[in-house]
Design a protein around this nucleic acid. Structure first.
Length: 195
DNA sequence: GCAGAGATTTTCT
DNA sequence: GAAAATCTCTGCA
């Protein structure tokens, strides 16, 4: 059960940011399967000064211009990777940043990758409570850039979180376009980076 | 429990 | 040369 390509093609970036909340991101790696519910996202659109694709296409942001349903993984601050779901048709640089997950599968493997103990409260929360952390916990690296969410070991299952309240607010950690309400998260979820 | 420094690649002024 | 869609560790309350 995975979301079909049409899901990514038939909605705009803002709508997808909202609809991805409560869906489950799954990664089947050689070491084992890890998965988590998406509980926090941010939208990055063309014409948005905070978007990497705002100025022009480079080797780093090329994946953002790919077809909807492509993964965009990039290095931030020289240390950490961030995971994005590319949206919009090919040639349009838009994407949804996955900021936080609630782990559902492969907790031990996540704990190993993050050097944390998932049986403790603090260790569990630290696994995926931020964009750079969840990339490590899921075993995602620069090699996953350009991969397709419908044709690889990484994919997203339809929404399985029954009921939740969605909060819309401004984005985090950026200086340009910081007043745009393009951040979405599940209210009260422990794994949201900043409630 | 919170605030601040530091790590390091990619891109642009 | 500097800033960027971040995290961890340290020091002090």
């Amino acid at each position: 059960m995975k979301l079909p390509l049409e899901f990514y093609e038939n909605h705009d970036t803002i709508t997808l940011s909202q609809r991805l909340l409560g869906c489950e991101l799954v990664h089947k790696s050689p070491e084992g399967t890890t998965a988590g519910l998406i509980v926090e996202t941010e939208a990055y659109l063309t014409g948005d000064p905070a978007c990497h694709a705002y100025r022009k296409k480079t080797v780093r942001n090329a994946a953002m211009f790919g077809p909807a349903g492509t993964l965009y993984v990039y290095l931030i601050y020289g240390f950490y990777y961030c995971l994005n779901v590319v949206t919009g048709p090919e040639g349009v640089g838009e994407a949804v940043l996955i900021r936080a997950l609630e782990p559902t599968e492969g907790l031990d493997l996540m704990g190993e990758r993050r050097s944390l103990d998932p049986t403790t409260k603090a260790g569990l929360r630290g696994l995926t409570s931020g964009p750079g952390k969840l990339v490590i916990a899921m075993g995602i690296s620069r090699d996953h850039n350009f991969l397709s969410l419908t044709e690889s070991g990484i994919y997203i299952r339809p929404r399985i979180l029954p009921d939740f309240e969605m909060v819309t607010t401004t984005r985090i950690g950026i200086t340009q376009g910081a007043d745009l309400p393009y951040r979405f998260y599940v209210r009260g979820n422990r794994f949201v980076s900043k409630p």
